[in-house]
């Protein structure tokens, strides 16, 4: 155990922690840029939506289901040519952004869709009755009203993506996941693996606690 306080190991964990945090935040951010509009589009173009285009909504839903049905570990391998084409490599944290974003975007679209659908249809109808345009309804009704729910969704999405990023350690991604797999699985140094696992658990707890608190504090339905 004393070996754990070796400065070299400490450095290893610090770098791993940084890589995991960077991978998770970057891929969550990019995935939200794509997934948030996609989730809104799913609701807006739905048969009962404010811009009904049922065929588009159904087609989008099918594409999302297809990607979502692929286990992440398989997706990692399948998209390797795409990863190489975009980043020039298939190993390291940066390369892992490609499969992470591909896996997280449809997931986030579904999470956003769920949050938006929670809004009372009457509120949207009232806005329509007042002459609000679809864009005004999205910006001034849907997003603010779903705010706390979207934040909880983002918290769940971030922890899920953190898990994905750790899994990517298996095919050459970086971060804490890679440390846990390389030291724990390949070299059987269980104590180092345990430290990496504990750090991952702490990260998830931190994100969950922090996100949940902001969501609760921002929700005006709770008095």
């Amino acid at each position: 155990m004393a070996a754990l306080f070796d400065p070299k190991l400490l450095q290893l964990f610090l770098i791993g922690l940084g890589e995991t945090a960077a991978m998770t935040l970057a891929s969550t951010g990019i995935s939200y840029l794509l997934g948030l509009p996609l989730g809104l589009l799913l609701v807006l173009t739905d048969r009962d939506g404010i811009m009904p285009k049922p065929s588009l909504s159904r087609a989008l839903g099918m594409v999302i289901n297809c990607i979502r049905s692929l286990p992440f570990i398989i997706l990692l391998v399948v998209v390797m040519p795409v990863t190489r084409a975009i980043t020039g490599t298939t190993v390291g944290s940066k390369a892992m952004l490609v499969p992470l974003v591909i896996a997280a975007t449809p997931y986030i679209a579904r999470v956003v869709e769920g949050s938006i659908r929670e809004i009372d249809a009457g509120v949207i109808e009232a806005a329509q009755a007042m002459g609000a345009s679809p864009l005004q309804i999205v910006l001034r009704v849907m997003l603010p009203e779903a705010g706390p729910s979207l934040l909880i969704g983002a918290t769940v999405a971030t922890t899920t993506i953190l898990g994905y990023s750790a899994l990517s350690g298996i095919v050459g991604g970086g971060g804490l996941g890679a440390i846990a797999i390389n030291y724990g699985y390949y070299r059987r140094t269980t104590d180092i693996m345990m430290v990496a696992v504990v750090l991952l658990v702490l990260l998830v707890q931190l994100v969950q606690e922090f996100g949940g608190r902001i969501a609760r504090r921002s929700d005006r339905r709770l008095t």
């Binding site: 009372d120 009457g122 509120v123 009232a126 007042m130 603010p144 009203e145 005006r220």
Partner: peptide, 12 residues
Amino acid sequence: MIFQGFHLLMQK
């Protein structure tokens, strides 16, 4: 227009 369920923005 006003409604039975009021339909106010709950976050405002």
